[in-house]
Design a protein around this nucleic acid. Structure first.
Length: 724
DNA sequence: AGCACGCCGACT
DNA sequence: GTCGGCGTGCTC
């Protein structure tokens, strides 16, 4: 028999012969250990055929790891379909979705009976394969004289257990300690037992030395923590439409629980923090499943069959016949996988549902543009109180007089404020006031951000991490006066503290996470931070949310920016579980549609108009769009590779160029950030309303000369992957 | 992805 | 003369 084995590597399936001397029939979906290069890797059987004449001698697989298939047939089919859609090998997708696939292995070998290897007499008994030279193992395997067995090493822990009955030989204290151990069954450590029995540590040590108690390796029983909060009441909807919007967070959870109440439901979450908060309130029984859990725990939970799983994208391949998949907050950027296949988890969920024949639901405060046309149900959105502060009229930067007044009221009333800034550090830009010089990252062609932890401060690249001390005088003209623009967390926090010295001010961003427990306890204060703040629980007395520069959240080069801005603003309205804090927006665009929608309490209008615009301009979802990224250390090499590809595609597209509703080929052009980490990047964009066309064009594309080509098959914002 | 192989520049 | 940079190709 010949196996097609998918390894969690960016490769297609590899062929192996079925394990030698293994009675088990191979079945698709089983995990199998295989020799790969000089070692052993674990993959999944995705196909079984009769052995045929091969171009080369196949190696034998070593053995299966599972009783029950790790993946089901629908999951295997899904991997193939998704791989084709994302122009990536199926193994890449397997690696992305199941990074915990490979367990630690117990791998033993010995020579088969009668093997004529007098030089290896030590190998007639089972030996741990790790003790032997991989080259020797390979040679023996080739020669067909090696017997192997392999299994998943279960996670264990050491525990102190009683080994014998107490006898008269023990002192009274030793007897008491042993009785305690027998009553408890086991103890974590000698000290723990001593404490439990009320004796000194020496007594327990004596028990162990005399052999009355001893250490035993026991299997680690793995379980997620119990939900931490009171369970919410499910809110079932009769004949629910595929899209449900509006409501408060807890209300949407109730609706999700209602959708899941018939069981066999996967509830998909964009990020771990949201998932954990939902799990804490979810009516049992349900299990969480996400990348924050240990690989051992995820492997253990993989086999569980709870009626409901609250999962991240890593739960998508679980061997379950879901009847429903509920996608929470489908518009979240976090669904986009930032590396590897760069797939989009919402799309993967759609594909999985399609192949399973499962019902799919989208449940969010504001719908994504991609789903806004589906039949929907609107629950009343949270009440909003919005105060736009027009920066074209108000004085004061980065804090207007109005903003300071609002902030001043916060401690007076014993309330709390949240100040949201798009940048971390002190300022987005630093420049010389006399000659306009500004520092650029030596690796990235991006302005260096100014951070101000000390007197002088540092210049930091938010792309590659490059950091240098800020200059004291301008290196270009010797000027000594610097200007700043693009206020960051530090600047705003400093300014608030300067204007309101009595107000306790906290900072919260990736680089500085102040302890917010005083706020959580209800003490007055203000916290200034980036969107990292949205992943902490809202302070209980939250009365004001201030955005000193709201457009900071609206990157101009991204066609999804208005949708994301709208989603962010609504997220603010839903931050506090019950209150409606005042949302004060300092902005040059107080009549931006997203701001108006927030004022009017409209959650679907902006996505609806965005959809119309995208159709007019030929952006997703009206077209499928793929970005080709050519990069190289030498600018000319990267550009030439992009030009070659453009030329090829120009010819390949032929007549389609004339008939296409939108220009199907854009570029090449330098990427929005022309150089990252020392590599020049050029972009070429392909788009067509018919996704199959793109696949044809790209399948013919010759590999680039010199430069590296990476595809972004689902560009969620061209600068969206840049951190800021 | 990792890893080996292979080809050109800066060092003992 | 070698060390080591990374560009290229392959993994059953």
């Amino acid at each position: 028999m010949r196996l097609s084995v998918l390894l969690p590597l960016p490769l297609g399936p590899l062929s192996y012969l079925a394990p030698e001397g293994c009675a088990r029939a191979p079945a698709p979906g089983l995990r199998v250990a295989v020799p790969f290069r000089k070692g052993v890797r674990v993959g999944v059987v995705v196909g079984v055929e009769d052995a045929a004449e091969g171009d080369f001698a196949l190696r034998h697989a070593i053995g299966y790891l599972d009783e029950e298939p790790f993946l089901d047939e629908a999951g295997i089919a899904f991997l193939g379909r998704a791989a084709a859609h994302y122009f990536t090998p199926a193994g890449q997708l397997l690696a992305d979705l199941v990074p915990f696939l490979e367990p630690p292995l117990r791998h033993e070998v010995r020579l088969v009976d009668g093997a004529a290897r007098p030089d290896l007499t030590g190998l007639t008994l089972w030996r741990d394969a790790a003790e032997l030279d991989p080259a020797l193992l390979d040679e023996l395997r080739e020669g067909g004289v090696l017997e192997e067995r392999v299994r998943e090493q279960k996670p264990t822990r050491k525990t102190l257990v009683p080994l014998r009955e107490p006898t008269e030989k023990l002192t009274p204290k030793q007897q008491a300690a042993l009785e305690t151990l027998r009553a408890l069954g086991e103890a974590e450590s000698q000290t723990a037992l001593a404490a439990a029995a009320g004796v000194g540590p020496g007594v327990v040590r004596a028990l162990v030395e005399k052999g009355y108690a001893g250490w035993r390796e026991v299997e680690l029983e793995l379980a997620p923590p119990a939900p931490a909060g009171p369970a919410l009441e499910p809110l079932p909807v009769p004949e629910p439409p595929p899209r449900i919007n509006g409501g408060r967070w807890a209300e949407r959870l109730q609706l999700a629980a209602g959708l899941a109440s018939e069981g066999e439901t996967l509830v998909l979450f964009p990020e771990r923090y949201v998932l954990e908060r939902a799990y804490d309130r979810w009516p049992p029984p349900a299990l969480p499943f996400h990348g924050g859990q240990s690989p051992e725990l995820r492997r253990a939970l993989w086999r569980e069959k709870p009626p409901v799983v609250l999962g991240s994208y890593q739960a998508l391949l679980m061997p379950r016949r879901w009847r429903r998949i509920v996608v929470m907050d489908e518009g979240s950027d976090s669904y986009k996988l930032a590396s590897g296949s760069r797939a989009h988890a919402v799309h993967l969920a759609e594909l999985r549902a399609e192949l399973l024949g499962a019902e799919l639901y989208y449940l969010s405060l504001t719908p994504a543009v991609e789903v806004v046309e589906k039949p929907g149900l609107l629950v009343r959105p949270p009440r909003t109180r919005v105060l736009p502060i027009d920066l074209r009229r108000e004085r004061g930067w980065p804090l207007s007089g109005r903003a300071v007044e609002l902030l001043a009221q916060v401690p007076e009333k014993g309330r709390q404020a949240l100040v949201l800034v798009a940048r971390r550090g002190y300022s987005g830009r630093l420049f010389c006031k006399s000659c306009d010089w500004q520092p650029i990252c030596p690796n990235c062609d991006l302005p260096l951000r100014f951070h101000k932890p000390g007197r002088r401060g540092r210049l930091v690249c938010h792309q590659c991490g490059h950091s240098e001390p800020a200059p004291e005088v301008c290196p270009a003209c010797g000027g000594e006066v610097f200007g700043y623009s693009g206020p960051g967390v530090q600047w705003v926090a400093e300014e608030i503290q300067r204007r309101l010295p009595e107000l306790p001010v906290y900072q919260y961003s990736a680089e500085r996470k102040d302890d917010l427990t005083p706020l959580q306890r209800g003490e007055p204060g203000a916290v200034v931070g980036t969107t990292a703040l949205l992943r902490t629980p809202a302070p209980p007395e939250l009365a004001l949310i201030l955005l000193p520069y709201a457009e900071g959240f609206l990157p101009a080069s991204d066609f999804r920016a208005p949708e994301r801005y709208h989603r962010l603003l609504w997220q603010l309205a839903d931050l506090h579980p019950t209150r409606s804090p005042l949302i004060a927006l300092q902005t040059f665009e107080p009549d931006h549609p997203a701001v108006e929608a927030l004022i009017e309490g409209d959650v679907t209008g902006v996505p609806e108009t965005e959809l119309v615009l995208r159709r007019m301009l030929g952006y997703p979802p009206a077209v499928r769009m793929v970005v080709l990224e050519f990069s190289h250390r030498q600018e000319a090499t990267a550009r030439a590779a992009a030009m070659d590809a453009a030329e090829f595609l120009q010819k390949r597209l032929g007549d389609y160029l004339e008939t296409a509703p939108f220009a199907p080929l854009l570029g090449p052009a330098p990427a929005p950030v022309p150089r990252i980490r020392g590599r020049y990047v050029f972009h070429l964009i392909l788009r067509a309303p018919e996704p199959d066309l793109l696949r044809d064009w790209l399948s013919d594309l010759p590999p680039p000369k010199g430069a590296r080509l990476r595809l972004d098959p689902d560009p969620v914002g061209f600068v969206g992957l840049l951190e800021d």
